[in-house]
Design a protein around this nucleic acid. Structure first.
Length: 287
DNA sequence: AACTAATGTGTAG
DNA sequence: TACACCTTAGTTA
């Protein structure tokens, strides 16, 4: 599930498998062929993720910019005995990275296949900075400044449910974390950003920092508080996703209050919320 | 086997 | 607002 936690975890995995090593870069599918040929055999210095963007830093100031989009993947395999153990590419592999264990690196032979990404391009450090400049603070970055996001939110008439997904406001939050953090903070998704109190924003941010860090560790989005896990056990778990309060639970009973979880489309995405735990916000500005 | 929806974003209209 | 991108798990037949 490529929200921010997936990208940070991927960057850590890539770093462990390829960081500091000479890497063979190919494009079996062909769409990244020219750039792959330029990078082939060079040292991949480090992998880094911010928001939903992944950057691979190669030597000579070359950077590969990857965005997984809705269904892109880059599974990393390490610890193989040798390059003979690397399987032939299957399907549309846009970019393949291979490091040969004969270099004596602790990760042994490693490979990774990128499929289905919306973005995979060779860029300059300046282009990378341009991407970073247009996205908001990332809750997974220890040095992120939540006030940058707050200055946008407090001035906006747009619903908070939309602002949380706007990568220029906040980087890394997707549809699952959006729905779940609003439920946990009992906020009406349609409530205008400018009606939030700063304490409510701080609570949302702090919650995202915790939830997303847990997501990096587990590799899944798990948002249930310990006291609500018993109620969740009464129903069948989603197999691949974690346990959620409202995400994709429309028509089912709210785990906390029993009301029926609702859904509607907001900015071309499905929004989920509990109408009782997250009551409609009414401005009391005018008497 | 065919069909649908999905964690996201950029572009065209 | 619609859809293109082009993968895959889950559902329906």
């Amino acid at each position: 599930m490529p929200e921010g936690h997936t990208l940070l975890r991927l960057a850590l995995d890539l770093d462990a498998a390829f960081g500091g090593r000479h890497v063979r870069v190919t494009s079996p599918q062909g769409r990244f062929e020219e750039s792959a040929a330029i990078l082939d055999g060079r040292v991949l210095r480090a992998a880094e993720a911010t928001g939903k963007h992944l950057f691979l830093d190669f030597d000579q100031e070359d950077v590969v910019h990857v965005h997984l989009g809705l269904y892109g993947k880059l599974p990393v395999h390490a610890g193989l005995p040798g390059v003979d153990a690397v399987p032939a590419p299957v399907g549309a592999v846009r970019m393949r990275l291979v490091a040969d264990g004969a270099d004596g690196h602790g990760a042994g032979t490693a490979y990774g296949d990128l499929r289905g990404a919306t973005q995979c391009a060779l860029v300059t450090p300046a282009e990378r900075e341009a991407v970073l400049d247009r996205i908001g603070p990332d809750p997974l970055k220890p040095d992120a400044d939540p006030d940058r996001a707050w200055q946008r939110i407090r001035r906006s008439r747009a619903p908070i449910g939309g602002l949380l997904m706007d990568q220029s406001v906040l980087a890394g939050v997707g549809n699952v974390y959006r729905a779940e953090v609003l439920f946990r903070q009992r906020l009406d998704p349609m409530r205008p950003g400018r009606t939030l109190r700063v304490s409510q924003w701080q609570a949302v941010w702090d919650d995202l920092v915790e939830l997303m860090a847990a997501g990096v560790r587990s590799g899944r989005i798990e948002t249930l508080r310990p006291e609500d896990r018993a109620a969740a056990r009464q129903r069948p778990a989603r197999r691949r996703t974690g346990q959620h309060y409202v995400y994709r639970r429309d028509g089912q009973e709210c785990l906390v209050c029993g009301a029926t979880v609702r859904t509607r489309e907001l900015a071309a995405r499905n929004l989920f919320w509990c109408p009782r735990c997250q009551p409609v916000f009414r401005s009391r500005a005018v008497g």
